[in-house]
Structures are given as C-alpha cells and as structure tokens.
C-alpha cells in the first residue's frame, strides 16, 4: 500500500526517459521510402563534359555510391575527403551536382580534388526531386542491379564508412 506513493515518481522517471529519447532523435533524419526500391532513372549532361550524358545505367554492373553535392553546400566540403577515402578503397563514387552552376562546381573540384568517376549535372534539381533529396549532402549505395540499398542524409563520417558503407559494400560485391 505504501508503494502507491511511488507511482508519481515512477511516472516522472518514465516521462524523463521518453523525453530523453526524444532529445536524442534528429528530426532532420527521415526514413527514406527509396531504400529497397530501384534507383530512379535519369539522363543528364555530365559536369566536366557537357556533351557527354550520364544515366543511372552507367553506374550499374558494380555496386556504387551516388553522392548528391553542391559547391554552395558547406557540409559537402567537409565531407569531400571522405569520398576520396572511399574512392581509394575501391568504391566507385558517382556524383549528382545539385542546383549548382558549372563554373562553381568545377572550381570546387579543382580546389578540393575530384574523387568522382563521373558527375551528373542537375542544374534544375529535378533528378534531385526524383531521389527525394532535401538536404545535401545525401549519399545512396546502389547495388549492381540498380537497387538502392542504403541512404545517408548529411555528412558521411569515418564511423559511417567503417560501420555501414564498407561492410555493406563488401556484402553487395559478394552478391551476384
């Protein structure tokens, strides 16, 4: 009977627990409906060479990263060395230059390096809409058949490379 007085205390701690979990969630990270679905097809001019096109199928045959970036995106600049690291590890990295100008984007690459196999130039951002892009940088891991297997919103960190991308990449590589 005495324990009844503890009920408000327990209720309080339960509330604190719920709020604590709430605080640790990042509202900007939304579950993507695209994971597990086929990557949307597109056909865009390449950034470096406007006369050459890049499409989704050009990335297939081998699992690949598809990284959405822009020169105006500060986080993309911080993320850039990570992409070089992945490229060095043998992961093909493709880019989608999102709502940018060609000259700004090329200057960005000249200054910070160019880890991309090829970059599609999405000036109007329409392919970005097809990929549900809302916060650059965003990175998709696409398997050899064109299925999106993983999506990360925001900067790729060494931990994400180590714990998520590389293990999944090796697994996808082993899949036929």
């Amino acid at each position: 009977m005495k324990l009844r007085f503890l009920i408000p205390l327990f209720a309080f701690f339960a509330l604190v627990g719920v709020l604590w979990i709430g605080l640790s969630l990042d509202p900007r990270v939304l579950p993507s409906p695209l994971v597990g679905k086929e990557a949307p097809d597109f056909d865009l001019p390449q950034l470096r060479d406007p006369d050459t096109r890049l499409g989704r199928d050009d990335m297939l045959g081998k699992p690949a990263l598809f990284n959405v970036w822009a020169s105006w995106c500060v986080t993309c600049r911080h993320e850039h060395p990570m992409l070089a690291e992945l490229s060095k590890n043998g992961v093909p990295v493709y880019g989608l230059n999102y709502k940018d100008t060609r000259s700004d984007a090329l200057r960005f690459l000249a200054r910070y390096g160019d880890p991309y196999q090829a970059i599609a130039f999405d000036e109007a951002g329409m392919v970005g809409i097809d990929y549900g892009v809302y916060a650059t940088p965003e990175t998709f891991l696409i398997d050899r058949h064109g299925m999106i297997r993983f999506k990360h919103i925001g900067m790729i960190t060494p931990e994400i490379i180590e714990n998520r991308i590389l293990p999944l990449y090796r697994q996808l590589e082993a899949e036929s």
């Binding site: 939304l30 579950p31 993507s32 409906p33 809409i129 097809d130 990929y131 549900g132 809302y134």
Partner: peptide, 8 residues
C-alpha cells in the same frame, strides 16, 4: 511526393 519523401 510520398514515393520520394515518405509519409512525412
């Protein structure tokens, strides 16, 4: 819209 950005 939902197909691209989810129920959100």
């Amino acid at each position: 819209m939902v197909a691209r950005y989810g129920d959100f």
